[in-house]
Amino acid sequence: MDLEHLAGRALGTVVFPVERGKLRELARALHDEDPVWWDEDAARAAGFDGVPAPPTATVLAAHWTPGALIGRPLELGLDVARLLHGEAAWSELRPIRAGDVLKADAEVEGVTRREGRRGGTMTLLVICTRFANQRGEQVAVLRDTWVQTAAVAP
């Protein structure tokens, strides 16, 4: 399917809370058991003004996005059986703290096609998500590259 017409499409906004419970679950999944990542007292004892979020914490937006993490690429027509996450790039503009409420605005930034190494055509879809906090400050920009691998010849 030709997806190039999707470039520039707005994908909507989700508003979500940065919850300590989800931060605790994320830190455990990332195998870092330091309570600074979820406990207010531990974070303050370490010199923070609140519980700090690790660099990839914007993934928590997925819990509030229709279809979760892969909802948007699938909604745009990518094939789940050929879908891979190719790249992710964060610009971290301001600290994120537990208790923040983030607004995430996403859009399709670009769609490119490339010849696959074993024939067929790969599609690369870049989704840009801009995150702002409850004070209206930009806190992060994330660019995800989703890859639809070339169809395997029958």
Partner: peptide, 12 residues
């Protein structure tokens, strides 16, 4: 565990 934490339920 990461699927639950990060919301990635790609069945692969």
């Amino acid at each position: 565990r990461y699927a639950g934490a990060g919301g990635d339920f790609n069945p692969i």
